[in-house]
């Protein structure tokens, strides 16, 4: 069954179309991640789904209901959980009391002790909330999001501010929940988080979905180019290589010296050690040519790595990020000096 259906969603703020024809579907039990830069329309979209914002066009169904219809408000909120981005400051209640209080609003809540265990706050159950650390308060927010035993959970940047251990803990919690059939809509800035948790990812930019797919295949990541990186062998020029480099950067602290190396005629420029990057959609051929050349010449390709584009690379490309002039300048400078 479909937990969430969005078709041609439009939201205007004055003349601006904050959400401009967004469509997607989320199946029961699926983890769906919405990625996008700040101001792209993520939060607006999610708030429309949660029933806290009206829409100007399009169809929306959440758990089979139209969230814009106030008559559905009660039933919708019984079926959904929302983990808010900012932590709430409650000076008077303990962790257990806050969970018990919120549990009382739902028809079929999870047992408070079960939630305490799930979010790892058993030891803090009887502490006042104001005495919790930032990470512990975020885990309580997570606990409050799931206390009502929701079939649909909204996670808005759930691990912002977590230390690495707490993040893994939160991920394990989300996996445990989805193992139990909970549908999750996740917004995040962390690509590794989307990759670790999401079954499907949509990238939203300027109010439109610019790509959608599994984290492995997003933006043609699975069939797209591969990145090969290694250190330029001592005494060799980029022009000596059997294949064309996409970019070359000098080793740390020596960015300004590449021109000088070229001027000295490339004679024994020992240890110049620039980092070479080659992007190719035919990595096998490139690697074969490179390694054959290295073996024949008797040199090493230090730190040779072969990578697919990361989700972050794809994301940056989809959201229109252009790398700064530094990298391009390095390539052209090197190109001039070797020809």
């Amino acid at each position: 069954m479909t937990a969430v259906m969005v078709d041609g969603l439009i939201k205007r703020y004055g003349g601006l179309r904050a959400v401009d024809g967004v469509s997607f579907e989320v199946d029961d039990g699926e983890v769906f991640a919405l990625l996008g830069p700040n101001g792209a329309g993520k939060t607006t979209t999610v708030e429309i789904l949660e029933g806290f914002r009206g829409r100007d066009g399009g169809q929306v169904r959440v758990l089979g209901m139209d969230p814009a219809d106030p008559a559905n408000g009660q039933r919708l909120r019984e079926g959904m959980g929302v983990v808010l981005q900012e932590l709430a400051v409650e000076p008077f209640l303990t962790v257990r009391q806050a969970l018990r209080r919120n549990a009382g609003y739902y028809p079929r809540p999870r047992p408070v002790d079960e939630v305490l265990a799930l979010v790892g706050l058993e030891a803090k159950a009887d502490s006042r909330i104001k005495n919790l650390s930032g990470g512990q308060q975020r885990r309580l927010d997570l606990g409050l999001g799931i206390i009502g035993n929701p079939s649909l959970l909204f996670l808005d940047e759930p691990t912002t501010g977590f230390d690495p251990t707490a993040r893994r803990g939160a991920w394990d919690l989300v996996r445990a929940l989805t193992g139990g059939g909970t549908t999750v809509i996740l917004t995040t800035h962390y690509m590794d988080e989307a990759e670790a948790l999401a079954d499907r990812v949509a990238v939203i930019n300027s109010g439109r979905i610019v790509a959608e797919g599994t984290p492995q295949s997003l933006g043609g990541r699975d069939v797209g180019e591969t990145r090969i990186r290694f250190g330029l062998p001592p005494g060799r020029q980029v022009s000596d290589l059997p294949v064309a480099a996409s970019s070359v950067t000098a080793s740390s602290g020596r960015t300004g010296t590449s021109g000088g190396t070229g001027a000295s005629g490339g004679t024994g420029a020992s240890g110049s050690g620039g980092q070479v990057e080659i992007r190719s959609d035919r990595p096998v051929e490139v690697l074969a040519a490179l390694t054959t050349w290295a073996l024949r010449e008797g040199v090493d390709l230090a730190g040779l790595t072969v990578e697919r584009l990361t989700l972050e690379d794809v994301y940056l490309r989809l959201t229109g990020y252009r790398s700064g002039p530094g990298e391009l300048a390095a390539v052209s400078a090197e190109g001039d000096s070797t020809r």
Binding site: R77, M80, G81, A88, V89, E90, D141
Partner: peptide
């Protein structure tokens, strides 16, 4: 301001 009112709004409490 502290965020608890929002915390309540996402629950089914009318």
């Amino acid at each position: 301001v502290g965020g608890w009112a929002r915390q309540l709004r996402v629950t089914p409490l009318p």
